[in-house]
């Protein structure tokens, strides 16, 4: 049996897998990787990967292999070194016992992923090992990873046909949205400015939501009171009472009573999650029929 010992982790490094969808009525949002396509790519490089991996942030990650294990990393653009030797990003490597891995922030992205050729041996909670930062369940005791944690790894999976890691091409351009369930509560002028004005990712972001800066004060005058709460889905853009727009992410609150002007299409949510604070964001409306056919 193999394991890794964490030597350095940011406050938001968590275990993630495909998450636990289908539990909204129980008050639990699905969680899962902020950038699902990057998480899946890391699995493709390995060929056969455990369902659970580590999501880390721009605070980076350091760990020591306690036994031999194959790893792959992807997501954003980070700086990886193994035993002091710089490696490319994304990457795949076979670690031997005692290998020291160091991951530091690079030029782009908020989230990176580390996956193994075996399962991380933590308990399943409601069918998943994903950490929910809002419910405090899953992963390692429902919390973020920290230095000193030892993650036991299960048996090696049957070997799959891996691929040589290549950097993904990330689309740019506006973030596409579908009209929100409360769009009609906003004036025409505000609805129009929402898709013409520029917003920016603020420094207040986590797995629950990303607050946006609104330099044009688009929502300063939007006073909407007392909505009955409805279920929330990832990508919902709600406007808080003080006019702050917030994009709800994978660990979103399961229900919400603030007005929602739009919802980010599924295909653009991964890309949106990787935008760093200060990045300008524009929104472009698309139809549901169009969005249903989009690939991330």
């Amino acid at each position: 049996m193999s394991a890794i010992r964490i030597t350095r982790a940011g406050p938001l490094a968590t275990l993630q897998d495909a998450g636990r969808p289908g539990l909204l009525r129980h008050g639990i949002s699905a969680s899962g990787p902020m950038d699902r396509t990057a998480f899946e790519r890391a699995g493709v490089w390995l060929g056969a990967a455990g369902a659970t991996g580590i999501e880390f942030t721009t605070a980076g990650l350091g760990f020591v292999a306690e036994g031999s294990v194959s790893i792959a990393v992807d997501g954003g653009s980070f700086e990886l070194s193994i035993d002091g030797e710089a490696k490319s990003w994304p990457s795949r490597a076979l670690l031997s016992a005692g290998s020291i891995v160091d991951i530091r922030p690079g030029p782009a992205g908020n989230y990176g992923y580390l996956r193994f050729d075996r399962e991380i041996d933590v308990p399943l909670v409601m069918g998943s090992r994903a950490t929910s930062s809002i419910a405090g369940i899953g992963g390692l005791d429902g919390r973020a990873l920290r230095a000193g944690d030892v993650l036991p790894l299960g048996a090696t999976l049957p070997r799959g046909r891996g691929q040589h890691p290549t950097p993904a091409t990330v689309a740019d351009g506006p973030i596409r949205v579908i009209r929100g369930i409360h769009a009609d509560r906003f004036s025409n002028a505000i609805r129009q400015r929402f898709v013409t004005d520029a917003f920016a990712v603020s420094p207040q972001l986590d797995r629950m939501g990303v607050r946006l800066a609104d330099p044009g004060q688009v929502f300063a005058e939007a006073k909407i009171l007392s909505l009955v709460s409805d279920a929330v889905v990832p990508g919902d853009i709600q406007i808080l009472g003080d006019g702050t727009p917030i994009v709800l992410m994978r660990d979103h609150q399961p229900t919400g009573g603030y007005p929602r002007i739009a919802t980010v299409v599924t295909a653009d949510l991964d890309r949106f999650s990787q935008l760093r604070p200060g990045t300008q964001v524009r929104f472009a409306p698309v139809t549901v029929a169009h969005a249903e056919g989009l690939k991330p």
Binding site: I178, R179, I181, S226, V228, D230, A231, G235, T266, A291
Partner: peptide, 17 residues
């Protein structure tokens, strides 16, 4: 009947409780 994202359909019976 309203779309809630591109994978959700919301059926709303009233505007208030």
């Amino acid at each position: 009947l309203l779309p809630l994202g591109d994978r959700g359909l919301l059926i709303r019976f009233a505007e208030s409780l």
